[in-house]
């Protein structure tokens, strides 16, 4: 896993020192990274940060899907605060499979 920032070390998956921030663990194609997000921002803001942090820059952002641990695709347009993630929640950023068959 990439080394978390000082902020994320203190509170991975929880509110950070700022009351408007939260730190997520985002598993990018099997590689967990720590990302700090603004609670008032839409969820898709964490996607670009997680891709940059993990070095996955070869695919455009729309080729990725953010899912919960159960595999449900999350609505990335929703505000983070309203999604009610519990402390320590891991999210999974998965590459959409290409055309098959």
């Amino acid at each position: 896993m990439k080394q978390p920032t000082e902020t994320s070390k203190k509170a991975a998956g929880q509110a950070t020192g700022s009351k408007n921030e939260v730190t997520f663990i985002i598993v990018v194609n099997g590689d967990p990274v720590s990302v700090v997000a603004n609670l008032n921002a839409p969820l898709h803001t964490v996607i670009g940060k997680a891709l940059a942090e993990s070095g996955n820059v070869g695919q455009p952002q729309e080729n990725w899907e953010l899912k919960d641990a159960a595999g449900n695709v999350l609505d990335a347009s929703k505000k983070i605060e309203g999604l009610g993630f519990a402390a320590g929640t891991k999210l999974f950023l998965s590459l959409k499979a290409g055309a098959a068959g």
């Binding site: 194609n29 099997g30 590689d31 996955n56 070869g58 695919q59 159960a70 595999g71 998965s94 590459l95 499979a97 290409g98």
Partner: peptide
């Protein structure tokens, strides 16, 4: 054309099997 995309990793392939076949 796909080699640097993340496709073909262990996680990617297992995730596809799980998402389309098991989950």
């Amino acid at each position: 054309l796909h080699r640097r995309s993340g496709e073909g990793s262990l996680h990617f392939i297992l995730e596809q099997i799980w998402a389309s076949g098991i989950n």
